[in-house]
Amino acid sequence: MTETPAIAFESVTFRYPGAERPAIEDVTFEVAIGDRVGVIGPNGGGKSTLIKLALGLLEPQSGSIHVLGETPERARAQGLLAYVPQRFDAERALPVSVRQMIEMAAARNISWRRRTPAEIRMRVDEAIALVSAGAFADTPVGRLSGGQVQRALVARAVATQPKILALDEPTVGIDPDGQERLSEMTRRLHDDLGLTIITVTHDLRVVAASSDRIACLAGKLHFHDAPEGLTPQVLAEVFEHDVSGVFGDLHVDAHKASECGGHH
């Protein structure tokens, strides 16, 4: 018997109301439990839409989506998939501290019988320690730097004890040190907690070194088994421009986009 995938998309098409073209079209892919998957693609290529569909925040016009065998809505209600958003649109006028922000989400995913202040505090403390956010745990979120906000959001996600962690453009607006720290942190979360991690980004360097599999998404999906399979041609097709700059020191084998990973 095959293991239930962490995330399974089957011929999923989604079009925003009033849009001419679908944001994502006929997308089929699976993420195995424990995998680290990077989804790269240009802005407007449907990456964030993909995560919102997996969370059940959007509903596809056709196709089916399952998260650990559940519908996205049920998976969200059970706290199976936690999300670190690209843009943090919180009401920063409200002086909510990092600890309080994490507490809101942590309390949500504890059954009411076990939802004691001590239990909530324990989960919050653990999450803060995991992302090394102790130094700013009592600071209002509105006063944090971009990198600190990102770590606080990861802590909030982890505090809900999910099986899958979805990161949407985690490095945007963060300095290189912060990016390195974030990369190290996600590696730890994967290794220590066994989380399945899906990272969506327009920057290949963010996921190249820390992903088991890479998918290229520009409306349609090109899937690769390993980052090494990506070529400049494939990326140029996905990004629709010269992409030599995004490779850094990655080793790549040249092949045509039409040979790209097989399944769409």
Binding site: A77, Y83, P85, A90, V96, M101, R108
Partner: peptide, 19 residues
């Protein structure tokens, strides 16, 4: 208080976490 605060502070986050 908790779901109300979550919604007040971060409506999109609350939705994503099923609050």
């Amino acid at each position: 208080r908790r779901p109300l605060l979550f919604w007040t502070f971060d409506e999109q986050g609350a939705e994503a976490f099923g609050s």
